[in-house]
Design a protein around this nucleic acid. Sequence first.
DNA 1: CCAACTGCGACCGTTCTAGTCCGAGTTTAG
DNA 2: CTAAACTCGGACTAGAACGGTCGCAGTTGG
Lengths: 131, 131
Amino acid sequence: MIRLSRKSDYGLVALKALRGLEPGDALSARELAAQLGLPGDMTPKVLARLAQAGLVESSMGKAGGYRLARAAGDISVAEVVRVLDGEPGLAPCREGILECNRIETCDIKHPLDNLHQEVMRVLQGMSIAQL
Amino acid sequence: MIRLSRKSDYGLVALKALRGLEPGDALSARELAAQLGLPGDMTPKVLARLAQAGLVESSMGKAGGYRLARAAGDISVAEVVRVLDGEPGLAPCREGILECNRIETCDIKHPLDNLHQEVMRVLQGMSIAQL
DNA sequence: CCAACTGCGACCGTTCTAGTCCGAGTTTAG
DNA sequence: CTAAACTCGGACTAGAACGGTCGCAGTTGG
């Protein structure tokens, strides 16, 4: 609960390493992994997802690698988490399998949603630049 | 991520049902389960943990059951979650197994902790009475 | 004494996650 | 044109966490 998966953790660290890179440069997944001490084959996966979400750009080929697609200040923690961990969702009563109670749609759903939005607002307020 | 386990969910719903109970009364786990549509044998477990944490009181015997140990306004969501899901902890880099990086103690740990505190502050600010 | 309840621990099955492996496509260097 | 270095994407395995169930011991009220 309120716990980042390792993917999100790795993603944040990687993005942090990627900021402060010269405009033309790029870092390969392998370099990042070695430099940050991340598990070798996990890093490409994380970066790939970030790339297809448009948070980083990738260049193929021999001197390829990754670089931030936007300014570090324009990438929020919330966005990274959403990409790597999927859309959050406070309670698991949405799969349609369970109906919780039949009384309305869960007594506590509404206030819990407010809570969730507040939490997301906090995550939204922090950018990669501030790490 | 930012996701309540079902235990916490059940706990919150149960506490909500327990508030608005006459001072002398008590609800048995079975009654609560039936009334809320929770899985039968899960409810005693959740309530037992809440009881040993001092959030609810239990009375044994034939007419036994559970009731709130404090006013609903004095029980925060954060407390319930902590009891049922364990102490949160934003990132899983504490087990001592991994050292993340050797550079200091994780570049992003500090700002992430701030974030975590803010989230907890949000949870702390909402009580059972407000559900 | 009996019935109904809590309390607590042990026990499975399932699901999610971390992590690894492998093949295919792409670009640059020589 | 060939080879090397890199990204891309899916498939696959192992392990942990979680939800859920069962059974027994202790306790209280009729």
